[in-house]
């Protein structure tokens, strides 16, 4: 089982603390939250995994703040990275 860190309670993404392969289980912990989910993708160390479903156009929240908008619908357990997040500040990523 791989580990992931939830940085702030209201975040909808967590940070994985090891390289994770598709199908592996990830234990998410932080702020009294402890849950286990299945990874839908390969996710590199320190990259983000969706901790909640995020609809297209909704905010991606890390550090308790909006770090971007979902470019596509993101399911729990998915890799959240530049392919599915768009900056609200500058375009292009």
């Amino acid at each position: 089982m791989k580990k992931a860190l939830l940085l702030v309670e209201k975040d909808n993404v967590a940070v994985v603390l090891d390289d994770v392969l598709k199908g592996e289980t990830i234990e998410i912990s932080g702020f009294g939250v402890k849950c286990i989910l299945n990874s839908l993708d390969n996710i590199g160390l320190a990259h983000k995994v969706a901790f909640k479903d995020i609809s297209k156009g909704n905010s991606v929240i890390k550090y308790g703040e909006v770090i971007g908008i979902a470019k596509a619908s993101i399911k729990v357990g998915s890799h959240v990275h530049i392919h599915n997040i768009q900056s609200t500040r500058i375009g292009g990523n």
């Binding site: 590199g44 160390l45 550090y63 703040e65 909006v66 770090i67 990275h81 997040i85 900056s87 500040r89």
Partner: peptide, 18 residues
Amino acid sequence: NIEGGLTTIEEKSLGAAK
């Protein structure tokens, strides 16, 4: 930064501002 897992300028700056 991106290879390390960061995505947007907001994410990078928030990490610094923390």
